[in-house]
Design a protein around this nucleic acid. Structure first.
Lengths: 205, 205
DNA sequence: AACACATGTTACGGGTCGGTAACATTGTCA
DNA sequence: TGACAATGTTACCGACCCGTAACATGTGTT
């Protein structure tokens, strides 16, 4: 019983979690390390003992978010073993929740948007995470029998990130409320005609 | 010849233009009033003589961007008089340019995203501008013979704003490069079946 | 008890930034 | 020329924030 009950995570984890939450709510520049340490039930000194700088803390947050995003695919496979179409549908449902609920781990985008043209070391992590996510989703669409999987993935990516942005500034009653509806419709359009409009347009030329 | 040649706009306009540009590039909190005044070829003092605060300057920027966005509809009507379908197609094309080129006046979203939960007075302006934009686009879709115009507008809104966000952090070779393609496909899907998938889903229940 | 170690507390330095004050400069009009 | 308004220049204040130093407080181990 050296560790009687892990009722409270160690300070490092609490700080990361608090930072992720506050970064998402107020932006990276919008929140101070003191407030983060305070929200984590700790203080600035222990924060700086674990993370050499605010940037290091940000990187740790992105790494954790990236790991969580990676676990999504295992959950989908476990929920619908071998059924790619059901997994894709479930993905849309979960994406809709990530949009309409604030606790989504889509903070990679927010972080990236705030680091534009800054040569921040976190850029590499974000790009890498997004690349693997894109590949996974493409494979899922392909397994679901969709011919133009890449185009569908791009469409879904635009939709979900547009929904996120819209939800934040236009509220829950804005266009983001129709995300699932629109996404399902787009998927259906891709499934109904594996020979897509692109092929049609190519034929016309 | 009191005013020989308006080769250079007055400081107020130059400051607003510089602020819009820098707000977009670095974020509202990411740029200082001194840098804005400098980029406008002016000083902080004249900036504060025209705008009582940085927030006032931001509001002036939003108002100007909102006016420019409003003029879009007149241009569309002038380019394709009476042809709603062509206007809608042109809208998609222009939206694609706004996404892939940085000078787009879609900065309302960026401003709103940075003012989340801050009770900023600019929130009202942004919401109002977005509301009228939504109404105009809905009317355009309806004139183009689309039954579920509201849903299509929501879909297009999600797509364009997702494309903007993606372009900023994933680069020009990311999903945003397919925006026009996806948007045209979605519009085509709405045109091909005025009785949409929503109606189908209602029938199933 | 004694020690090592992680954590908490307080205070401070250095920097940035929003905003103001006082003064100098320019340009226009009578 | 003289007056007046708009603009430019410099300096400064106060607030905020990142990061560090020094010290105090536990906590577990031997």
């Amino acid at each position: 019983m050296t560790i009687p009950a892990k009722s409270v995570p160690p300070p490092r984890e609490r700080i990361i979690d608090a930072a992720r939450d506050l970064f998402r709510k107020h932006g990276i520049r919008g929140i101070g390390v003191d407030a983060i340490a305070d929200a984590a039930g700790s203080n600035k000194m222990t924060l700086y003992r674990h993370f050499g700088s605010k940037d290091d803390l940000l990187i740790a947050c992105i790494e954790k978010a990236s790991l969580e995003a990676e676990s999504l695919w295992e959950e989908l496979e476990k929920a619908h073993p071998g059924d790619a179409a059901a997994q894709l549908q479930d993905w849309v449902r979960r994406a809709g929740e990530f949009v309409t609920v604030d606790h989504g781990n889509c903070e990679l985008l927010d972080a990236a948007a705030q680091l534009v043209e800054s040569n921040h070391p976190a850029h590499y992590l974000i790009k890498e995470s997004r690349r693997t996510h894109r590949l996974r989703l493409t494979q899922l669409c392909r397994n679901a029998g969709i011919a133009e999987a890449e185009l569908l993935v791009d469409a879904l990516t635009l939709l979900i990130e547009g929904a996120r942005v819209n939800w934040r500034c236009a509220g829950a009653d804005g266009p983001s409320s129709r995300f699932v509806e629109v996404a399902e419709m787009v998927i259906k359009a891709f499934m109904d005609r594996p020979v897509s409009c692109v092929a049609h347009r190519l034929e016309m030329q």
